[in-house]
Design a binder for these strands. Structure first.
Lengths: 234, 234
DNA sequence: CCAAAAGTGTTATCGCTACACCCATGA
DNA sequence: TCATGGGTGTAGCGATAACACTTTTGG
């Protein structure tokens, strides 16, 4: 691509603004949360919004989303999937803006807390999401649906856990995603039958006196499974 | 939206070109085909491409895709789903163009033949797809994958059949999508168990001496099913 | 010793798969 | 009458769902 060809081709095309918006889910060992921030520019300055940015000339659309995520959380190498294109003509009264939305999953810990703070961002529980600007409430709704659907054919939720985790923790995660209770025995049976977990000899005693065994992913088997797109219906 | 606000907000944003590309599948009672056309503009003039267009200021992104589909086939009210955003910085040497791809399913008949012809478009079997411009081969690959995945949780393929159809026809469609043979008895059993088909008393004798009963969708039940997102694994 | 969470097995049911034979009819 | 595609039933298997009691240990 060079400047010359840009001016030669596509004369009839109409330039528009391209944005990315990231619906970021975080899991704090209990609850699934959503990262929102107070928008810094007009229109709708200081109203709640999912995090986003315009796509700059020097980056691809997906890179733009990755950059935004890193700016706000300091995290990179995060699972992120594209969600949908929001391209209604009047969706943004500020200009003709087409937004490509993404959703990402992160594990809440210390790392991101500082950066989230300095950006005036905040985590919200799924049941207390405030009104958002533009079509962002729709984006969130769509993300949740996609997240739930996607966990059915990819064991996606694992991204949200620490390296070592217990089976009850993993179960809480799925319960948070699906918003319903699961049977302990069946859950354990199913997850173990996939042979993607490696049992450690340590226990985590933070949530019970007896303590629960810690597990770790067998990432090799995990990769294989993702590739084969195995069903994973709970 | 008004011209004034456009100039006031988002000064820092960089305008880019937005395109839509439609991966259009057609079914001719036998085989699944793909609609391609010879591109009319430089660069890559006269090379094969999926059908597409730039998004104009007067239309939303999805409307743009619907318009393009209608321009090339004369068909409207077609099932169409968004596929993916292709936003690599150098994907199009002609300019910085972000493309939102869609995929659509149509039933091949007389209606669209004329328009397809006048646009120098052509139907290609899935096994004889020529090299395409830019990342269009990737789009096609992604569409097929999405089509196959999506038929698992929505009985999507029905869009490709005439109003009245036989069970063997429906089976051929699924065989074309999955590119493998299915068991007659099991297919019939499964599809009938969903209670979304209404058996008619007419027979279609075009493919056998005995004739096969025609069926029609019970669209009410069908809608319910789509809403509930029932599993539909063959 | 007891409260609170972790861990474990069995049974009944359902859905999937695999498989072979009769039916209707036009040529 | 026969070739061709349409139509049907069953048995075995594996996965799922429902369900209750024992274990561990810190307080």
């Amino acid at each position: 691509m060079n400047t010359h060809s840009k001016t030669v081709y596509y004369q009839e095309a109409f330039p528009i603004l391209m944005a990315v918006d990231c619906v970021i889910f975080g899991f704090d060992r209990q609850e699934l949360k959503l990262l929102l921030f107070k928008r810094k520019i007009e229109p709708f300055k200081n109203e709640w919004s999912v995090i986003g940015s315009f796509v700059s000339p020097t980056e691809g659309v997906k890179e733009s989303a990755i950059r935004v995520l890193e700016e706000y959380t300091g995290l990179s190498n995060i699972f992120m999937d594209s969600l949908n294109c929001y391209g209604e003509i009047d969706r943004d009264p500020g200009a003709r803006v087409v937004s490509q939305a993404f959703f990402a999953l992160i594990r809440l810990g210390e790392e991101e807390a500082q950066m989230v703070e300095t950006h005036q961002a905040n985590w919200f529980g799924l049941n207390s999401i405030p009104p958002l600007i533009l079509d962002h409430n729709q984006m969130v709704k769509d993300s949740l649906e996609k997240l739930r659907r996607k966990t059915r054919y990819q064991p996606i939720g694992f991204e949200l856990l620490p390296e070592k985790f217990t089976i009850p923790q993993l179960q809480s995660l799925y319960e948070a995603i699906y918003q319903r209770q699961l049977d302990r025995r069946n859950f354990r049976k199913k997850i173990l039958s996939m042979n993607i977990l490696e049992k450690l000899s340590e226990k985590d005693k933070s949530t019970s006196k007896k303590g629960a065994y810690l597990y770790r992913f067998d990432s090799k088997r995990y990769e294989e499974m993702v590739k084969r797109g195995i069903d994973f219906v709970l």
